[in-house]
């Protein structure tokens, strides 16, 4: 009987671990997606498909800072694989570099938020913030379809 209880307890804790790691993967995916979603408006403005809107740009930059602050904690040691993650093993091999990339994105977003006052300063500063996406994904993310 005791054996059965222990086995059940192990099974339950294993299930919780699996649940927890897919949970954190889902959370970080949602968080990164919120950054992508926030890019839609300024992206359209950069392409000339939407009129410049300072409030929307500032909201996006605030979202970036929020994501950059929260994201690193969601790449836990137990979430290297599973849950259809596209995080590259490099994230854990070089956690310091990975965190530094988020800090740079955060700092660039903050600097852009201070510098952007009108359409001209938006076009001059915003692309610099966007460069962080590709640079970080190049190293820390695997290809995915």
């Amino acid at each position: 009987m005791l054996r059965l209880v222990i086995a059940a307890a192990i099974a339950a804790s294993a299930a919780t671990t699996v649940l927890a790691q897919s949970d954190v993967i889902a959370q970080r995916k949602d968080l990164m997606k919120s950054a992508g979603g926030a890019t839609r408006d300024p992206g359209a403005m950069l392409k000339g498909e939407a009129a410049f809107d300072l409030a929307k740009v500032q909201a996006t930059l605030a979202t970036y800072q929020n994501v950059a602050t929260k994201a690193p904690a969601l790449f836990t040691d137990t979430s290297k694989t599973g849950g259809d993650t596209s995080a590259a093993p490099k994230v854990w091999e070089d956690m310091n570099g990975f965190k530094a990339a988020f800090e740079k994105w955060n700092a660039d977003s903050k600097a852009a938020a201070a510098a952007i006052k009108d359409e001209a300063s938006f076009k001059a500063n915003f692309p610099n913030v966007l460069k962080n996406c590709g640079t970080c994904h190049e190293t820390y993310r695997v290809k995915k379809s």
């Binding site: 890019t39 966007l130 190049e138």
Partner: peptide, 11 residues
Amino acid sequence: EYDSVGGSMAA
């Protein structure tokens, strides 16, 4: 969707 491509596609 404003996802940014990663891996060697970034290059």
